[in-house]
């Protein structure tokens, strides 16, 4: 299946900047398409139709199959003084990248998948939260999300109610803004840059961008990988492994549908 125009129009992360040192040459894949990446003085990405766009941002290398891509979204927090960026590496998951975004946004799984860390079964209720589209109409924000967490971050001590904001900056990129346990009025960022390799396979590049003076980078890395690998097991066992967007099946993801996204999604008729 050829990816729909909206899916094709985005930039996708393919790895951390340090994964492509000078002299690097390797094969990669996005949207069921083989691409070659090389670094000889500058980074080059080549696809079936020749040279492709490439940029380095947010600690990662990004590319696009589109000749006229939508601009990569802004995260001004990357410019803020005092923050630490930890990139957690490329982790492959046998599911639609859209599924990985859906799971990331779903607070209801915290007490059962991340028991004792991001949730406890005694506090399983998800309170009402607000959902809005971003100014340009191509982002989704979920705000005023509140959840009780026994160990919300590597730097957290004891349980607390944490306020969250979720941002879906593009269909395969999602960022969580959570109240910083150490600094009032600031948000810590945790995000996924998803590289969809096939409709039902993806590589997840994740990052943590936080104020934290107590933990080493490796402490933060272990915390993040521990959480994500708990998710991976669940993601790989979801049926169907593409994102169901039919109202007869599961709650449809309206935002995905409104942009005409079909790639990596599935409809009721096809499996019934």
């Amino acid at each position: 299946m050829t990816p729909d125009p909206f899916t094709l129009s985005h930039w996708y992360a393919i790895g951390r900047i340090e994964d492509f040192p000078n002299g690097y040459k390797g094969e990669h894949r996005i949207l069921s398409t083989d691409i070659a990446v090389s670094h000889h003085g500058e980074l080059n990405v080549t696809g079936p139709e020749g040279s492709m766009g490439v940029q380095t941002r947010y600690g990662h290398v990004w590319t696009t199959l589109s000749r006229d891509p939508r601009p990569l979204y802004n995260m001004p927090e990357f410019e803020e003084e005092g923050r630490r960026l930890v990139t957690a590496g490329a982790i492959a998951v046998r599911c639609s990248g859209l599924r990985a975004v859906e799971n990331f946004l779903d607070m209801a799984h915290f007490p059962f998948v991340h028991t004792g860390i991001l949730g406890v079964e005694e506090h399983a209720e998800v309170e009402k939260y607000d959902v809005s589209m971003g100014a340009a109409g191509d982002e989704i924000w979920a705000t005023k999300c509140r959840f009780f967490q026994p160990m919300a971050a590597a730097a957290a001590e004891g349980g607390q109610v944490i306020e969250y904001r979720y941002r879906v900056a593009h269909p395969y990129s999602t960022i969580l803004y959570k109240t910083c346990p150490l600094r009032d009025g600031h948000w810590d960022l945790i995000g996924l840059f998803i590289q969809p390799t096939e409709e039902d396979e993806c590589i997840v590049h994740s990052f943590v961008l936080v104020f934290d003076e107590h933990n080493t980078d490796t402490d933060l890395l272990h915390f993040q990988q521990n959480i994500f690998l708990q998710d991976r097991m669940v993601l790989e066992n979801q049926v169907p492994n593409k994102l169901p967007i039919d109202p007869r099946w599961e709650m449809p993801t309206r935002a995905v549908k409104s942009h005409g996204v079909t790639w990596s999604t599935t409809r009721f008729e096809k499996v019934a």
């Binding site: 951390r16 994964d19 990139t87 957690a88 590496g89 490329a90 080493t216 980078d217 490796t218 402490d219 890395l221 272990h222 990988q225």
Partner: peptide
């Protein structure tokens, strides 16, 4: 003592 096995290959 956490070791950055992946991705850092510590």
């Amino acid at each position: 003592r956490p070791v950055d096995f992946f991705p850092g290959r510590e």
